[in-house]
Amino acid sequence: MNIVVVLKHIPSVADELPVRGNQVDFDSVDFVLNEWDEQSLEQAALIKEALGGTVTAIGVDVIGELDNLLHLALAKGADRAVKIAADDAGADSHRQAKWLSEAIRPMAPDLVLVGVQASNDIDGQLGPLLAAYLDLPYIGVVSSIEVQDGTALMNKEFAGGFGARYSVRLPFVAGVQVAPKPPRYAPVSKIRQIAQTAKIEVLEPSGEADSGLVFRKVAPPVVSGHAEMIEGSPKEIAARLVALLKERGLA
């Protein structure tokens, strides 16, 4: 099994996002690993543990600090680490997908795992775009991937609480929602040891792509309106609720 896991370095939402001009002020925000990528990384490690093979962690180095994430990936079971040195903090999923596809194609992967979405773009497009560029099938919002004889079985989630079980022939690209187990903890001693010895392959971004979208204005959401707290006995609260619903023509 030759598995490729895509890691996305994105601004941390623990921060209040500072805005400069019409973009996030990337210089004054911490970058973290996209949380869904932690799931796809764990999924990759589990498949490797079950079947053997290699896991390659790859990502676009948007701010020059991707090494930390790649070391983490190596500590969690990846065998090979590749970064695309782009230095483009605002690179969107379209651009990243193009660059990634150029880098991944020569690897001839059996399986490419991406996080189903990332909390910067929240468009869930990286996986589908990557699949299109690689000319591979894509399946998103999946969990619990099991590989057997060139075919992978997995669960896919649909809206409304529905799920389905899919069987997909390798190779393909999957957008991982959740791994069957919580992502493992990588002890810092191990990460530091890896940081001292690991070799990270560096690639230059190749290819051009663009979403065609232009930011007109970026601003924090404006707070408007307030919740009304209804107080009183359960009876009084119920009466007030009914009155409100009637008032607004909802009942």
């Binding site: 623990a14 921060d15 209040e16 004054s28 911490d30 903890y185």
Partner: peptide, 16 residues
Amino acid sequence: LQSLATNGNWMGKSKR
């Protein structure tokens, strides 16, 4: 522990 490694605090808050 993960927050301590990235943010230097255990509460998942930004350093800033």
